[in-house]
């Protein structure tokens, strides 16, 4: 913060100015100009077309009138199977994903591995984290076919990226003295992991798993849009049939289930702390 902006005038009055957030004026105005130019350019590329928006409005009305009231019954059994499949995908992918994240997370923790292993672990986690589940979903659908299995594989990788990174961070934050103490007893590497590292990250790990259950349930609702099983499939075909009543019913149930899952996952996390 600049102090130079405040000066005492010759008549003794104090000239006060609010200190600027970025004190270097060149940088301040440079950033401002850059932001303005960038935004003007970016808006220009958006192809905002008001006539199209206008034409869209009746279409929107049509969609909403189709969506209200939501139609829970005519495709009721499809909706139920869709949600059950989403939940199954969530459970399996979270279990396998978390179990896989442990070795990869350990590999990617700088304080307990050698450099080459660390780089491999980091690279795997970065790739898994960078790819959106829908991208992964498309790839797995191509590789192993439509259905829940592609969805499970997708969310396993998604979990690996997310939980793996947080486990690595948790391991990097542990108290090293406890490792030294166990090492000093003559214990081997894996015994040290079990005795000195695991107990320290266990609460975080359980909390993360609960949280990931919640995240995976959310993600499992969209990967179906690309054919990877679950309620997303049902939703996509409802949209495809212009069956907006069923679509809105699915969206409402989705909101409800996600809220319940969030509450339950929060409760479980508090319980395991």
């Amino acid at each position: 913060m600049s102090i130079a902006a405040n000066t005492v005038n010759s008549d003794g009055s104090f000239l006060w100015k609010r200190p600027h957030f970025i004190s270097n004026p060149l940088l301040r105005y440079g950033l401002l100009v850059f932001s303005v130019v960038y935004l003007m350019y970016a808006f220009g590329t958006l192809e905002i077309n008001f006539s199209r928006v206008m034409r869209g409005i009746p279409r929107a009305m049509q969609i909403f009138s189709g969506a209200i009231p939501p139609d829970f019954t005519s495709r009721g059994s499809l909706i139920v199977t869709g949600f059950i499949e989403s939940i199954q995908i969530t459970i399996l992918s979270t279990t396998v994903g978390v179990l896989l994240s442990i070795p990869f997370g350990f590999m990617a923790a700088r304080n307990i591995t050698i450099l080459p292993v660390y780089w491999v672990g980091r690279a795997i986690i970065i790739v898994a984290r960078s790819l959106h589940p829908v991208v992964l979903g498309v790839l797995f659908v191509k590789a192993v076919g439509f259905g829940a299995f592609a969805g499970i594989l997708t969310l396993i990788i998604y979990t690996l990226g997310f939980v793996g990174k947080l486990i690595a961070e948790a391991v990097e934050e542990i108290k090293y003295g406890q490792i030294e103490a166990i090492r000093a007893t003559g214990a081997g590497y894996f015994t040290i992991l079990i005795y000195a590292v695991f107990p320290q990250i266990m609460p975080r790990l359980i909390g993360l798993s609960m949280y990931q259950l919640d995240i995976n349930l959310r993600a499992s609702t969209v990967i179906g849009l690309v054919g990877a099983g679950g309620i997303g499939n049902t939703l996509n075909s409802a949209f495809g049939r212009y069956d907006y009543g069923t679509a809105s019913a699915i969206l409402l149930i989705m909101i409800g289930i996600i809220l319940i899952a969030e509450t339950v996952s929060g409760k479980l996390r508090r319980f395991t702390r």
Binding site: L46, G56, I63, R218, A219, T221, F239, L259
Partner: peptide, 21 residues
């Protein structure tokens, strides 16, 4: 919060037509 970005996108593509908007 409960509706995924991609589902919102599906909806707005139906309303506004395809494109970055």
């Amino acid at each position: 919060r409960s509706i995924n970005t991609l589902i919102w996108a599906l909806l707005f593509v139906a309303i506004l037509g395809p494109g970055p908007m």
